[in-house]
């Protein structure tokens, strides 16, 4: 049995078809708040298009956006309370008991992998299904991916796969094929195998933790920030109560079951009445 700290996910983006099977399972099983995603496929356009026979080097790429679980994690350094931390398997997780919803982790993540779940006044992110890993199971997204673009195993297995696959892809003409995450931020637990350069997938090259964040993480006065955070929590509590009441109203109007949180086109900042008016206008057309 391998060390759990060594277990690694690899996303082979040359096989990702953007079907969102991973997203659907994650949202469904963890009942993730509407418009919040722990994992999501994003499209990136790249290259030049010209009409004619072949398409030039124009490509549309799919990128699985989720937490990469950096060894040197900006979010962990940014968190003033220790809510955003490394668990015993060296995965970046959020302990909501300590979260004051200050959102610093989300703001400092270079990959936008953390979302602020306003209705629940917490931050949400992928934990790599930490409890499944503890039980010797794979994260859901690697077990459900119908094209096996999402893989999971020991770091050695994943690195060996990457080496072979990159060689194959380069042989097929994807000369920029590369592996992202082996060294970034001290090495990441989610490796990204790319068939174009990281920039074309919207990933920062040779990213570094900004000095300001390093200073912040060693700052002695963080308890002051903590108090400010507490004030924010108070505000957020009131705000989210208001939001919940509104959401309940919308559900009622749309005759949605309590489990069904999603209404089309509604996001947290929408004015619900305006939305209703707009729907009514659409109906009149």
């Amino acid at each position: 049995m391998s060390n759990r700290n060594d277990l690694t996910m690899l996303v082979d983006h040359s096989l990702c078809i953007g079907c969102e099977a991973c997203t659907a399972v994650c949202k469904n099983i963890y009942d993730v708040t509407p418009s919040i995603f722990r994992t999501k496929i994003k499209e990136h356009d790249t290259g030049q298009f010209y009409s004619g026979s072949s398409a030039g080097n124009m490509r549309k790429l799919y990128k699985k956006d989720a937490c990469f679980h950096c060894s040197e994690a900006s979010c962990v350094m940014a968190c003033p309370t220790g809510a955003c931390r490394k668990n015993e398997d060296d995965l970046v997780v959020i302990d909501n008991r300590l979260c004051i919803s200050c959102n610093y982790c989300a703001k400092n993540c270079p990959y936008n992998a953390i979302s602020y779940d306003r209705p629940n006044a917490v931050v949400d992110k992928c934990s790599l299904c930490e409890y499944r890993i503890k039980e010797g199971l794979e994260p859901f997204c690697s077990t459900v991916c119908p094209t096996t673009a999402v893989r999971f195993g020991t770091r050695d297995e994943m690195m060996a796969y990457a080496e072979n696959r990159i060689q194959d892809l380069q042989g097929q003409g994807y000369v920029n094929a590369n592996l992202y995450g082996a060294t970034e931020f001290g090495g990441q637990r989610v490796l990204n195998l790319l068939d174009e350069s990281p920039q074309q997938y919207g990933l920062p090259v040779n990213p570094e933790i900004p000095l300001s964040l390093r200073l912040w993480s060693s700052m002695p006065l963080r308890p002051v920030a903590l108090l400010a955070g507490a004030a924010m929590v108070g505000f957020n509590f009131l705000h989210s109560r208001k939001y919940s009441a509104k959401a309940e109203e919308v559900r009622e109007k749309h005759k949605m079951a309590p489990h069904c949180h999603f209404a089309p086109g509604i996001d947290e900042d929408d004015d619900m009445e305006a939305l209703e008016r707009k729907k009514e206008e659409d109906r009149m057309k």
Binding site: N96, R97, C99, F237
Partner: peptide, 25 residues
């Protein structure tokens, strides 16, 4: 949770634990 956040140590919901029951076995 707000109380816990300012260090009063009152145990708060931890939604990660609820997810434990979602593993297949």
């Amino acid at each position: 949770g707000a109380a816990a956040a300012v260090g009063l140590g009152i145990p708060k919901f931890a939604h990660a634990e609820a997810e434990q029951s979602l593993v297949e076995p």
